[in-house]
Design a binder for these strands. Structure first.
Lengths: 201, 201
DNA sequence: GTCGGCTGATGACAGTTGTCACGGGTTTGT
DNA sequence: ACAAACCCGTGACAACTGTCATCAGCCGAC
């Protein structure tokens, strides 16, 4: 019997995945949480062996949760299951110690198999995404540039970004200019959009 | 036996919802599609009575699919089930003839009940979202303003928007200026973000 | 029929943004 | 020790953006 923890902030999806996995004779959903920062405690309590983690969650992201799991409960294996197949996510998930990475548009019948493989200690990675991830390469942005771009996501003017980052406006514009150049964009809004689509933020 | 069609572009979610609903004795999933433009044909063929429609789908949006269903198969009832609880979506869904509107973080156990109510001819609307939708009121944007804002979503400069819209740059800036004023934003990126969050695009 | 709103356009203006060159500080690896 | 990268900042300039006034054609409502 494979003991599973489900982490997804959308209750309906979480419940539906539970129903799907409970159909399998050798799989048992032993815990469900809706926040990333509840994963470790729930995994410890329930004695889960495999954690299915969504990335977009309040509290901690699925990737951060995988990292925390590796640190606290190294025996537990993480399988990231997410909506967005952003190239950068794959690398970051693997760096965080995740054993697998699936996108939510893989066929439902493959999920149980992925869980079994991860449970056996194998790696499971969406092949299309793996290729894309290798093509795209790592993020070209420096820490600071990514940080500034994240603050630019909401469309606020330079003055607002500078205030939130505690930087001078000139410095912010320099970072943005660098980010625009590196992403191949022409405006900061486009750069922010591209960087997010690549999972660089 | 309530005959259901599932429409969601994420195969995993679709399959999981099918598993969840098939647990109910009086509900049967008779069709599944991953695109909005396959809904009507599949509903006709399968003799579905209730359609669960995601909004974000390739081909046609769930709202457009509901509209098409009302026109072609008026006996079929539509229940919108979506990730984003954008106020404007509720109104547009109801205008399109949808019988219900749920967000994906409602508890899984409530889904079957919602399906039954919709099947009985009742309306089912997420109460929080209904309130928010009434508060927010209808979109303040004119058709053209919304259209221009949609083109501004990717962060391209005015010249690019003007080219795609076949308008002069001056006119585009006028529309954007109006949209910025109406949304209470200070830049077009912020206006586009706000408008999208409200479901006005 | 006239008024008001939407649409398209122009021109002008101030303010913001993107770019560049430059300088100084820190850390990292050789 | 040194180079290379990063970070922060300044100042200047051209380009772009947001705003406003103004005009004109086209509806639909009263």
């Amino acid at each position: 019997m494979i003991r599973i923890l489900l982490a997804d902030d959308q209750a309906l999806v979480r419940g539906a995945l539970a129903a799907l996995l409970d159909l399998e004779a050798d799989i048992e959903v032993v815990a469900q949480v809706g926040r990333g920062d509840e994963v470790v405690a729930a995994a410890r309590e329930s004695g889960a062996e495999v954690c299915l983690l969504d990335i977009e969650m309040p509290g901690l992201s699925g990737i951060e949760a995988a990292s925390a799991l590796r640190a606290e409960l190294p025996a537990v294996r993480s399988l990231i299951v997410t909506t967005f197949g952003r190239p950068g996510y794959v690398r970051r998930a693997l760096d965080a110690g995740a054993a697998g990475f699936l996108v939510k548009d893989t066929p439902a019948r493959q999920l149980a198999d992925a869980v079994r493989r991860v449970h056996q200690g194998l790696r499971v990675i969406d092949p299309d995404l793996a290729a894309e991830s290798l093509m795209a390469g790592p993020s070209p942005l420096t820490t600071r540039e990514a940080e500034i771009l994240r603050l630019a996501l909401d469309g606020s003017p330079v003055a607002g970004i500078a205030a939130r980052a505690h930087l001078s406006e000139g410095t912010v514009r320099n970072h943005l200019s660098a980010a625009i150049g590196k992403t191949g964009a022409t405006t900061r809004a486009e750069a922010a959009r591209l960087a997010q689509a690549n999972g660089w933020l």
